[in-house]
């Protein structure tokens, strides 16, 4: 436990020096999305009184909230992890002290979730100011954001420890993060897609997070019962953790 805390402290100490740029992007991007899509495109959508049942801004806001958690968590689990092994060799240095490999992994995972939580909290505040929050359950979106962050970033920790070149991260963005953001129910309901695409959306962790978050901020029912959504996200964590730990062990203990 002490080792994990020391690792977390290490990452926080560095973050204290470099936080400005990250706040800028992880905060400003969703605000721009809310303005550009929610309000301007939303104007046309709401005119037609479509199938959503709620204003378009309110519909996409919780979706963007979760895709923010996804983006922050996954990108923090890519380049910085690669850096720890290949460039700064930070992990190797940690390993020379009496901390275990699992402490190194867990401490960094905890830091990444903290980053995701900060981004989600900031965004939730902006949503509230935009008037897109309609339920007292809204604060529950915070733990859901962390859950999405864990489910998506923990397997990526393993991936980042495995790859030999940072060019491989573009693959994660192109085949994972971007398709999820576009098709996992953030901008329109997955029911509007053909069955095959819908099945893929159900597989993606983001859709489950979006359903939960929409339930929290709008007070509407989730697609499936909420424990199923939570359970599915936990499954990603349960599978991802041993994979990540194995890759870390392979890199640090051979």
């Amino acid at each position: 436990m002490g080792g994990t805390v020391a690792v977390l402290g290490h990452h926080l100490t560095i973050y204290r020096r470099v936080w400005r740029g990250s706040v800028f992007t992880s905060f400003l991007v969703p605000v721009l999305f809310l303005l550009g899509m929610g309000i301007s495109v939303g104007g046309y959508v709401d005119e037609r009184q479509g199938p959503l049942g709620v204003p378009y801004l309110d519909f996409i806001a919780p979706g963007l909230l979760m895709s923010t958690a996804l983006q922050v968590a996954v990108s923090e689990a890519m380049w910085p992890v690669f850096d720890g092994f290949a460039w700064s060799r930070r992990y190797e240095v940690m390993r020379t002290a009496p901390v275990r490999t699992r402490d190194i992994l867990l401490g960094h995972v905890a830091f990444v979730q903290l980053r995701a939580l900060i981004a989600v909290a900031g965004f939730l505040l902006v949503m509230t100011l935009f008037g897109a929050v309609h339920s007292a359950l809204a604060p529950l979106a915070l733990p859901v954001g962390v859950l999405v962050g864990c489910a998506t970033s923990i397997p990526i920790f393993g991936y980042s420890a495995h790859v030999k070149s940072e060019n491989m991260f573009a693959v994660v963005m192109r085949f994972g993060v971007i398709p999820m953001t576009l098709f996992a129910g953030v901008f329109f309901e997955v029911g509007a897609m053909p069955p095959a695409a819908r099945a893929l959306a159900y597989v993606s962790p983001l859709w489950h997070g979006v359903e939960l978050a929409r339930g929290a901020t709008l007070g509407v029912d989730t697609a499936w019962s909420w424990p199923l959504h939570v359970g599915y996200l936990l499954l990603w964590i349960a599978v991802g953790w041993p994979l990540a730990l194995r890759q870390f062990t392979r890199r640090l203990d051979t």
Binding site: M37, V41, Y44, V45, R48, G50, P51, L52, Y56, I178, P179, L182, F183, F187, F188, A192, M193
Partner: peptide, 16 residues
């Protein structure tokens, strides 16, 4: 292409 499918057709169905 993904953007086109998602925004053009997915959101497009809502916008008209």
């Amino acid at each position: 292409l993904l953007y086109l499918l998602s925004i053009g057709f997915g959101v497009g169905a809502l916008v008209g």
